[in-house]
């Protein structure tokens, strides 16, 4: 199993712990990958609001690069997944539009034929590796821990761009993976809502209220941590939680926000440093402690 790896800007920027933990966990799982080092940012929906064709061209270039490598794309960012899925759908539905974009790409000798598959690591776990194989790599049974799933908008909407018809299991993939570790997935309403990051720099008060609602809800449901496949959600839910806590009656929340690979790494018995768990704004100490004292997985 080999992938054209597309980590996305935030894994290379504001959440270095995602990159570290993803690499550690993927190595353990034996996932071969080759990074598409020349790829551009997907535009994250922001470039698209200025010029959709520009955003689409940057993404189609990435698809063409992967096509040339003969590999499917794997990303570790919900937002990248969604933006790429939407761009791919637009060009596949409209051959004339694709031809226009290919004309732009022709300058560097690239052409997209339309065959590239784009899969988030979360989907790779459920569809390609399979839960049974995944569980074989776990040395800990995280029973006694409760995790709140938080998907990120772009990996759940619009549903018709994300292949849910063909792969209905994608809609509950995060809960499936959480539960595969022996932990409980709490049922938080906020799990498919917006974290607030896209308006953080535009209407900070609203963005922080979203953080307060979602992390507060998960905490009230007894979650030890929140788990997300989206580094953009992580940036807001972790980084702005101290501010959001002021909006709770108790004045505190203290809910660690784990990247998906970090939770898997804990189940694989990896050391906190290998997973970058010291690089969080909200302390991960308690959840690390609980995972460390979790029973040995018996398979």
């Amino acid at each position: 199993m080999k992938y054209a790896f597309y980590p996305g800007c935030v894994a290379r920027g504001g959440t270095p712990e995602l990159m570290v933990s993803a690499n550690a966990v993927m190595d353990r799982l034996g996932i071969e990958r080759e990074e598409i080092v020349s790829a551009a940012c997907t535009g994250a929906g922001v470039l698209q609001e200025r010029n959709q064709k520009l955003g689409d061209a940057l993404n189609v270039r990435t698809f063409a690069l992967a096509e040339k490598m003969g590999l499917p794309i794997m990303t570790i960012c919900s937002t990248c997944q969604g933006v790429m899925s939407q761009a791919n759908r637009r060009v596949l539905r409209d051959p004339e539009y694709l031809a226009e974009i290919n004309e732009v790409l022709a300058e560097e000798g690239l052409q997209y034929k339309g065959t590239t598959v784009i899969k988030h690591f979360l989907w790779v776990l459920v569809e390609e590796i399979g839960i049974e194989e995944l569980q074989k790599t776990f040395t800990k049974e995280l029973s006694g821990l409760k995790f709140a799933p938080f998907y990120g908008c772009y990996i759940v909407r619009p549903s018709d761009a994300l292949g849910f018809e063909e792969h209905p299991e994608r809609q509950t993939s995060l809960e499936t993976v959480i539960e595969s570790t022996g932990a409980v997935a709490v049922e938080n309403d906020g799990k498919t809502k917006c974290c607030g990051l896209p308006i953080l720099l535009i209407n900070q008060s609203n963005a922080i209220q979203m953080v307060s609602n979602h992390t507060g809800e998960a905490k009230d449901l007894g979650a030890d941590a929140m788990v997300t496949p989206c580094p953009l959600c992580h940036l807001n839910l972790d980084g702005y939680q101290p501010k959001a806590a002021k909006r709770r009656p108790s004045g505190k929340i203290d809910l660690p926000i784990l990247h998906l690979p970090q939770m898997l790494g804990l189940a694989m018995g990896m050391q906190p440093k290998e997973l970058g768990l010291q690089r969080h704004i909200i302390s991960t100490k308690e959840v690390i402690g609980k995972a460390a004292s979790a029973p040995v997985a018996v398979r």
């Binding site: 020349s38 010029n51 940057l58 732009v104 690089r279």
Partner: peptide
């Protein structure tokens, strides 16, 4: 917490990306 890369990060071929910007815009 060591969250921000001081060097920033780049595509290995930023010129190719810039070329797309120029061509489309």
């Amino acid at each position: 917490k060591g969250k921000f890369p001081w060097k920033g990060h780049k595509s290995s071929e930023p010129d190719k990306v810039k070329q797309i910007f120029e061509k489309i815009e």
